[in-house]
Design a protein around this nucleic acid. Structure first.
Lengths: 93, 93
DNA sequence: TAAACAAGTTTATTTTATAAACCAAATTTT
DNA sequence: AAAATTTGGTTTATAAAATAAACTTGTTTA
């Protein structure tokens, strides 16, 4: 049985990537709202995805407020598609 | 975002259930071969699935050798179908 | 100007997954 | 026939992961 990429096989990281796969980009606040995660947890998981180069993270300022914007990288997109194919085997789809 | 049943959202437990969903039953030895898991890990994860009543476990003797046979329960089957539906949302399927 | 808020990050705790060590019975080797 | 090995596991210890609590820095607001 093919292994499920452990970086994506995590409730929260999968949710983050799922959102990013169907949007051009999403910022920290939006991801937090959608996933209902705590800020700390979200921060950690975003960082893991960034370290693996699955997502790109850009820290800017919107006026005086900081804004952390995330988007998928090509590596991340490939990893996601791979994960989808593998999970389908497990789910008999 | 709907949460992914943590009991099923685990590499090894998902593999076990995936196998059991497409077979009437499977024994410990077979599951170990298919999943490539260590006996200890397999034993632990089987027990968690049993505690949740997702699978039924029967310990018999095949001649002189012990044999641990697993099969899905109705509860388990429902949980799996539910999990499939939820994951599909995450994967945009 | 002090208190509360926003957007995060860092660190500590809890939970989970995994493997190493162990056990009992049967089988094989010497 | 005693010793070593294998089979089919379980129990316990360790490593990794997820999560939350506490903290930081700058910004409004009372």
């Amino acid at each position: 049985m093919k292994e499920l990429d452990p970086l994506l096989h995590s409730q929260l990281r999968l949710a983050i990537v799922s959102i990013l796969m169907s949007a051009v980009e999403a910022d920290f606040v939006y991801l937090k709202e959608q996933t209902q995660a705590t800020a700390g947890n979200l921060s950690v998981q975003i960082d893991k995805l960034r370290e693996a180069d699955y997502i790109a993270v850009e820290k800017t300022f919107e006026g005086k407020k900081p804004r952390t914007v995330c988007r998928m990288t090509d590596t991340g997109r490939r990893a996601f598609e791979d994960y989808v194919q593998t999970v389908k085997l497990y789910l008999h789809l």
